[in-house]
Design a binder for these strands. Structure first.
Lengths: 145, 145
DNA sequence: TCAAATTACTTGACAAAGTCAAGTAATTTG
DNA sequence: CAAATTACTTGACTTTGTCAAGTAATTTGA
């Protein structure tokens, strides 16, 4: 058990700071038809090969029933389509419709815009350094897994 | 307007990763009597000199009415006490009671424990590097302010 | 100097987000 | 092939957060 209090305090301070950064960047959901959680689900559907509710729940922690309703809503809105898996008919394979792809792109572009604003003042060197630091932090924090 | 897509994608990827880290560390609220937002409010009360609802709202984005009710709840639970400011009787100065301090400490200790678990496998050098990287990221992202 | 505007907070009514548990149909296990 | 498990759905509910109107104290400016 670690007992390095200045270290822990620094980490917590950074976490508070970065929570705010993430909060700022999540503001693009405010002028979108999606909630933060819906956005995450849409992201998973977009980026998961042969996506299903089960796979989504493998990637983000979300209540089964809640997810079921979000998927239902997306279908009603014409953003995704669902077909029973031929291998296992309990599973439903989910994919974006054309409309869903367009909506996802909009969301994505708005997100990119906000990141540009927040990170745009950095020089090329600073940007390179930032990416290296982010990658390193990721390696450090994946040590336990 | 920045147009460096690999950069933006790396930032977003890190943000998704770190959102999960923060989510993990916020899990200590699950076995506490507080919600995440209540915990943040308690943190502000603990760390703000001459705290008032106004000052809390200066530090975290929260609806005025919602905050008013949280403060009310904390008073009913005996965690804080409120006295009208002598300088401006619209304001109420808020501070933790003894009980509030104890509850805050518990919350704080649980949080520290989770951070220890997540970061505890790092060597002394890695910990030092991590803090430097976190500080640098913070400087970079504060450039616009 | 005092009426109008503003500020700090409160309250009621409501909406959005998330949780829990029971239920259905398909699949796996022994 | 009966019992257990899995993937998902549905109903009922709680928690969390928002909006707007209201009150009392303070500030502003003609």
């Amino acid at each position: 058990m670690l007992n390095d209090h200045p270290f822990i305090e620094s980490v917590r301070s950074f976490n508070r700071f970065y929570t705010n950064i993430i909060g700022l960047l999540d503001q693009h959901f405010l002028d979108s038809p999606f909630s933060l959680t819906e956005g995450r689900v849409l992201y998973e559907i977009r980026h998961t090969e042969g996506c299903s509710a089960k796979k989504i729940r493998g990637n983000i922690a979300i209540d089964e029933g809640y997810l079921s309703r979000i998927i239902d809503k997306f279908i009603r809105q014409g953003l995704i389509k669902k077909k029973p898996s031929s291998a296992d008919r309990r599973l439903h394979i989910i994919e974006l419709t054309k409309k869903g792809q367009i909506e996802f792109s909009k969301l994505n572009n708005n997100s990119n815009k906000l990141i540009s604003q927040k990170f745009g003042k950095l020089s090329q060197n600073e940007r390179n350094d930032l990416i290296i630091m982010m990658k390193t932090i990721r390696v450090f924090l994946s040590k336990n897994d």
